[in-house]
Design a protein around this nucleic acid. Structure first.
Lengths: 148, 148
DNA sequence: TATTGTTATACTCTATAACTATA
DNA sequence: TATAGTTATAGAGTATAACAATA
């Protein structure tokens, strides 16, 4: 039972549902945080990864974000349209593009990262560092399960 | 750095992104698990909550699932079309419906819950009970943050 | 043959506004 | 006026198949 009077006996046993609901909460707050930069969750992740990895290829980005290549195209399109990212031809492989963040992209990225850090500090204030560490490590161990 | 060679230095600091990627992994596996019952994540959650709370109203269900009322309508429609759930009029309030699981709904629910338990046991095998407890409690503390 | 990026498409999930019938 | 349920709609995110150019 909870304060709402609804019996969660069965649902409470399922970790996955807790995870999903928590992500909804976090993402709603994150969307508000990123709105001022006109970024969304995925465009922000992509921008950060490109800024941290100059020359990254789209297939690598897709793998890093656990997305399909086709979905990454749209994300990079959006960042390129706003002159935050450029696709450069790769001489050694003319099928591929090397992604790099422009000066503008780096500038927005830095501001957005600071805002997201503040958002996370606020949202996870109730968790001490040790619990936060267990949380992150537990979540990361699941990623690995998928990649195997 | 990771085995992929991609630098996650900035991204790794963000708990929210770990959560989102983990949910993707879990949900992909959960979808496969529920497919045999022709259920999806949301229809399964709703079915379980209705089965555990006979007479539940749609607004309560929406709150319990952290969804809008309008989205719950579609979910209940789907369950009703498959004769797993019925909407009964509430004499004391003719605006509302009391949701109850049919025998068929209870049967499928029981099978699906067992399947999801197996899916979770497999997916979270790497986490001992104490870590799993920290994980769930940490995630739950975020739900509360939203409801305040 | 296999891979990179691309297009097109479809489906799930989430959010909002506006409506109706009741309260 | 407020609430329960509804309809319609829009947008984000995810997944798949098929294609052209290149390896």
């Amino acid at each position: 039972m909870t304060s709402s009077g609804v019996n969660f006996a069965t649902m409470d046993r399922f970790v996955g549902y807790h995870m999903k609901r928590a992500v909804n909460v976090v993402q709603a707050d994150l969307d508000r945080t990123l709105k001022q930069f006109d970024l969304r969750l995925l465009t922000h992740s992509a921008l950060v990864l490109i800024a941290d990895n100059p020359g990254l290829r789209q297939t690598q980005l897709a793998a890093a974000m656990s997305l399909g290549r086709s979905n990454v195209v749209v994300i990079v399109d959006a960042l390129e349209a706003r002159h935050m990212v450029v696709r450069r031809p790769v001489p050694s492989d003319r099928r591929a593009y090397a992604l790099t963040a422009t000066m503008e992209g780096q500038r927005v990225c830095k501001l957005a990262v600071a805002a997201v850090q503040a958002h996370e500090a606020r949202l996870f204030a109730g968790l001490d560092m040790r619990k936060r560490d267990v949380l992150v490590k537990s979540l990361s161990s699941l990623h690995i399960s998928k990649e195997i």
